[in-house]
Simulated scan of single mutants.
Amino acid sequence: MEQALVQGRLEALAHPARLTIVRLLAELPDEHTAFDPRCGSAYGVCFCHLKEKTGLSGPTVSHHLRILREAGLVEGVRVGRWTHFRLKPGALEALAYELLNLARQAQRAAAKAI
């Protein structure tokens, strides 16, 4: 993963409200999850649920969702008039993989220094 993408995702997750939104989306499915009736896959959570659970204003939730979308962590799925939000498949795993590689590299460097 390129360095700019890793940095953008880390910056997006650094804000407590965005981390809370990611945590809420990671808990899917729950009673607020909308599903595609044809195949049963989850569309995601509606904006109003995120607003309610975070206690933030609508414009603030929109701002944080935009940053998470731009970082490639969240996607919106239109269902009629509503947009439901969910984590992008693999986005957090890719970031975790990069961080794990950095940790292993640091361990190898520390072992060589001893």
Rank of each mutant, 00 (worst) to 15 (best):
M1V: 07
E2W: 06
Q3V: 09
V6Y: 03
V6G: 02
V6E: 14
G8P: 07
L10G: 09
L10A: 11
E11N: 09
E11W: 07
A12K: 11
L13T: 07
L13N: 04
A14L: 12
P16N: 06
L19Y: 04
I21S: 04
I21A: 04
L24S: 04
L24T: 07
A26L: 15
D30N: 15
D30Y: 03
A34C: 06
A34M: 07
A34P: 00
F35K: 01
D36T: 07
P37F: 03
R38V: 05
R38D: 12
G40F: 01
Y43N: 02
G44Y: 03
G44D: 04
V45A: 08
C46W: 02
C46T: 01
F47E: 05
F47H: 08
F47A: 01
L50A: 06
K51M: 08
K51I: 02
K51W: 00
K53G: 00
T54K: 08
L56V: 01
L56R: 14
S57W: 01
G58F: 00
G58C: 01
G58Y: 02
S62E: 12
S62M: 08
H63D: 02
H63I: 01
L65K: 11
L65R: 07
R66A: 11
L68N: 13
E70L: 11
A71I: 10
A71M: 05
A71P: 07
G72M: 11
V74P: 12
E75Y: 05
G76C: 11
V77F: 00
R81Q: 14
W82A: 09
W82Q: 10
W82S: 04
T83Y: 02
H84F: 15
F85Y: 15
K88R: 15
K88C: 15
K88S: 14
P89A: 15
G90W: 11
L92H: 11
L92G: 09
E93A: 15
A94S: 15
L95Y: 08
A96Q: 13
A96Y: 08
Y97G: 01
Y97T: 10
E98T: 09
L99I: 10
L99Y: 08
L99C: 11
L100I: 10
L100E: 13
L100G: 08
L102M: 12
L102H: 13
A103P: 00
A103I: 05
R104Y: 06
R104M: 09
A106M: 10
Q107M: 10
R108V: 10
R108A: 15
R108S: 09
R108L: 15
A109P: 01
A111K: 07
K112D: 12
A113D: 11
I114F: 03
I114R: 06
